[in-house]
């Protein structure tokens, strides 16, 4: 394809992807509470509203707490599992890998409904910590996949050298394995964090009536009409995602993380 044609195609896809976000960014700086584009006047007060309005601030705080905790739990589940699958030959253990990937592959409504029936049956329905566990299980796929990739990239002769020198599994893990997979731990956490921040249906079905995360807050607010804070929150979340993935790309190898081989280009 000629260069001009290629640029045109990239531009078209770029416009399609950016257009709704540009409009949202535009309406977020309207001076009054009107849904108007191009924006009338200029004001950053709707960004301030996220932090000054108690409801929005609480929702933001709930979302950040949920994301930070659930990503941590997801990591704690994924790390020993990925390590075991790398260290041992135990084909039947692959079933846990499959179980770890399943919640993310199936339509999210299914996982959400599974949690809803489970928490309702056990009597914990509505407790904030149930959302942490639900999100951790729902997003365990992400650290599991990045960690498996990280482990497979480890040169086994390094580990073997350490073992010949008499290092135990524990010492090897701390001194050789951990430094090598640290970037994958960080990116696995980052992926789970950002997706948990944005997740709606699982959070809604587990704690929707007792706790408001930001996506739940936006959805509830949408039913009563429009407020520009929805737009400013969307821009904020997009910025957080771009920042986190930008950092992952800056300090890690994003193309490789996404499955491309790094050496050949």
């Amino acid at each position: 394809m000629t260069t001009a044609l290629r640029r045109l195609f990239f531009l078209a896809v770029g416009i399609f992807l950016a257009l709704p976000l540009i409009v949202v960014a535009g309406v977020s700086i309207n001076e009054k509470q009107t849904l108007a584009f191009p924006p009338q006047g200029f004001s950053l007060s709707w960004y301030g509203e996220i932090f000054t309005n108690t409801e929005w601030r609480n929702a933001l705080f709930a979302s950040l707490t949920l994301a930070a905790l659930s990503a941590a739990v997801a990591l704690v589940i994924a790390l020993p599992l990925a390590w075991f699958l790398w260290r041992r030959i135990a084909p039947w253990a692959n079933i846990f890998q499959l179980l770890g990937v399943a919640p993310f592959t199936l339509p999210p409504v299914i996982t959400a409904l599974g949690f809803l029936t489970f928490w309702a049956t056990t009597g914990f329905y509505g407790q904030p910590w149930t959302a942490v566990i639900s999100h951790a299980i729902f997003f365990v796929t992400l650290p599991l996949v990045t960690l498996s990739l990280g482990f497979s990239a480890i040169d086994r002769s390094l580990v073997e050298a350490a073992a010949t020198m008499g290092a135990t599994d524990r010492v090897i893990f701390r001194t050789v394995v951990l430094p090598l997979i640290l970037p994958y731990i960080v990116s696995g956490y980052a992926f789970a964090f950002v997706l948990s921040l944005n997740e709606y249906i699982v959070a809604y079905m587990t704690v929707g009536f007792t706790m408001e995360t930001l996506p739940i807050k936006i959805f509830n607010a949408l039913r009563y009409g429009y407020t520009p804070t929805m737009a400013s929150v969307t821009v904020l979340f997009l910025a957080i995602a771009a920042l986190v993935f930008g950092l992952v790309a800056r300090y890690g190898d994003l193309p490789k993380l996404l499955g491309a081989m790094a050496d050949d280009r």
Binding site: V27, A36, F37, N198, Y200, F237, A241, L254
Partner: peptide, 27 residues
């Protein structure tokens, strides 16, 4: 890739809101 990941992780609620704005009469 960073842009695609950012949009992919965007909440479905926010995508719905963004498009309903883009398809609205006033904005």
């Amino acid at each position: 890739l960073v842009a695609l990941l950012s949009i992919l992780s965007l909440s479905e609620v926010m995508i719905g809101f963004a498009w309903s704005t883009l398809f609205s009469r006033t904005a």
